[in-house]
Design a protein around this nucleic acid. Structure first.
Length: 288
DNA sequence: CCTTGAACCTGCGGGC
DNA sequence: TGCCCGCAGGTTCAAG
């Protein structure tokens, strides 16, 4: 049984789905469920972040999964009836493919049973995640996607784009890169890591960045996300081969979660500040 | 228009 | 042992 346990660990506990994690989930789902027919759906809780629509099960059952893709941190499961399931993991969500003999666990909210005796399970303790249905025809104009900025790993997200869009913005650079209207998919962890790599302090006013700094930032974002996706991909591969736990934060972060520890580059003590309610970790020697 | 901060929810770890 | 408190994460929405 090809069980895909998408279980991300940082210091042994936290699951933190940012763009690389969602990308890894999507690739795993693509392998695991594309082509399968949904026999039945169990919605065990409707009160997720957005309510699961009352006839969700009836609309979805009997459909075949055509493909699985991603936009920002949204998981898109395309069905043969021309509809798309839009899923979001929130901050604690998981998507797991198991045998349909597996007993429902706590916080298993939606279960899709396939005709081949496997099932897809959406589990989300905090219920910040959700599962919606949308017509594939108008997917790109759906309210959820309308305001989103470019994907960070496309050419559309480049130095000129950033220079143009930081004009007259008075917010700190970290808040700018974490705002989905500017660029999607950069959460707290990779924002900290990208700013370290770009040698820019998180509380710098974004419109004050020099062109060279913008260049470093754009490249750092792409590199940090790409490296994390590669790490996720290899972990997924390892998991399938060994049935071990997929711990894909096996690599150490440079600054995230390292307050009072020493910078790997210059041995300066890593600092932490709060920016609009979020912790920012940085090295005030390496970052300016 | 821009910016800030609270709210949503649960589990876990630290302090007492 | 157990209770209380703070914190973590992504996104939206209200208020300044």
């Amino acid at each position: 049984m090809g069980k895909v346990q998408l279980n991300f660990c940082q210091k042994g506990r936290v699951f933190m789905p940012e763009l690389p994690e969602v990308e890894t989930v999507v690739r795993g789902l693509s392998d695991q469920i594309a082509g399968k027919q949904i026999q039945m759906v169990q919605v065990r809780r409707h009160d997720l972040r957005y309510p699961v629509e009352a006839n969700f099960d009836k609309i979805v059952q009997q459909q075949v999964v055509r493909s699985v893709s991603r936009r920002a941190k949204y998981i898109l499961i395309h069905l043969s009836n021309g509809q798309t399931i839009i899923g979001h993991l929130g901050m604690s969500g998981r998507m797991v493919v198991t045998s349909n003999q597996t007993r429902p666990a706590k916080h298993d909210h939606v279960i899709w049973l396939f005709t081949d005796h496997t099932q897809l399970v959406f589990n989300d303790a905090r219920r910040f995640g959700f599962v919606l249905l949308a017509d594939s025809q108008v997917l790109h104009t759906h309210k959820i996607f309308r305001m989103l900025g470019p994907e960070p790993l496309t050419d559309e997200f480049n130095i000129s784009y950033v220079i143009e869009h930081i004009l007259n913005r008075k917010i700190p650079v970290k808040q700018w890169i974490m705002d989905n209207k500017n660029v999607v998919g950069i959460g707290n962890i990779y924002a900290c890591e990208a700013l370290f790599k770009a040698k820019i302090l998180p509380d710098r006013k974004v419109s004050d960045l020099q062109k060279e700094e913008v260049s470093q930032l754009v490249h750092a974002i792409k590199e940090v996300l790409t490296a994390a996706i590669c790490a996720g991909g290899s972990s997924l591969k390892d998991y399938v081969q060994t049935s071990g736990t997929l711990g894909y934060f096996q690599h150490q972060f440079m600054v995230y979660g390292r307050e009072n520890e020493l910078c790997f580059v210059c041995q300066t003590v890593i600092k932490r500040i709060k920016q609009s309610g979020r912790s920012s970790f940085y090295c005030d020697e390496c970052q300016r």
